[in-house]
Amino acid sequence: MTGFSRKARINGAKNDIATIDSLQFDLATIEAATSNFSINNKLRQGGFGEGTLANGLEIAVKRLSKGSVQGAKEFKNEAVLVAKLQHRNLVRLLGFCLEGEEKLLVYEFVPNKSLDYFLHDPVPEQKEKLDWSRRYKLIGGIARGIRYLHANSHFRIVHRDLKPRNILLDAMEPKISDFGVARIFEVDRTRGNTSRIVGTYGYMSPEYTMRGQFSVKSDVSSFGVLAIEIISGKRNNIFYQSGRAEDLLSYAWELWKEGKSLELIDPALRESYSEDEVVRCIQLGLLCVEQNPEDRPTMTSVLTMLTRHHLKLPLPQRPRFFIQTESDDHSHQSVNEVSISKQNPR
Rank of each mutant, 00 (worst) to 15 (best):
Y201P: 07
F109H: 15
G140E: 06
E102N: 06
D170Q: 13
E99T: 13
M210I: 15
R134W: 03
F155M: 14
E102H: 14
M172L: 15
V198D: 01
I197A: 09
G180S: 04
A151E: 15
P122R: 10
S215Y: 11
L119E: 10
C97Y: 08
P174C: 07
I146W: 01
R183V: 06
S215N: 12
P122C: 09
K127L: 01
G100L: 09
L149G: 00
F214R: 03
P124Q: 03
S153H: 13
R147P: 01
I167H: 04
E99R: 13
P122M: 07
G141P: 09
E173F: 12
K163T: 09
G192M: 02
R189T: 13
P206W: 11
R211C: 12
I142W: 10
Y208N: 03
E186F: 05
H159M: 10
P206I: 04
S215T: 14
H159L: 05
D116F: 10
K113E: 12
P206D: 10
A182Y: 02
K175V: 12
E102T: 12
I146E: 04
L115I: 00
L98Q: 04
L119S: 04
I142V: 15
K127N: 05
F96L: 09
R211I: 08
R196S: 10
G212Y: 07
K175D: 00
R196C: 11
R135Y: 04
K163F: 07
L105R: 02
A151D: 15
Y203W: 09
W132Q: 11
G141M: 05
K113I: 01
L169V: 00
H154I: 05
I157A: 09
R211H: 15
I139C: 01
D161P: 04
G192I: 02
M210K: 14
S215A: 13
S195K: 15
L162H: 00
M204H: 08
D178I: 07
L162G: 01
L104T: 01
L168S: 05
V181K: 04
A151G: 12
E101R: 14
F214C: 09
P174F: 08
R135W: 07
K113V: 12
L130D: 08
E108F: 07
V187A: 14
T190K: 13
S215Q: 04
P124F: 01
F109G: 02
K129H: 07
V158A: 02
I139F: 06
L115G: 05
M210C: 06
W132H: 04
G100C: 12
T209W: 01
K129A: 03
Y203A: 02
S195Q: 15
H159K: 11
L130Y: 12
Y148K: 03
K137C: 01
N193Y: 14
S114L: 10
F155N: 13
I146Y: 00
K113L: 11
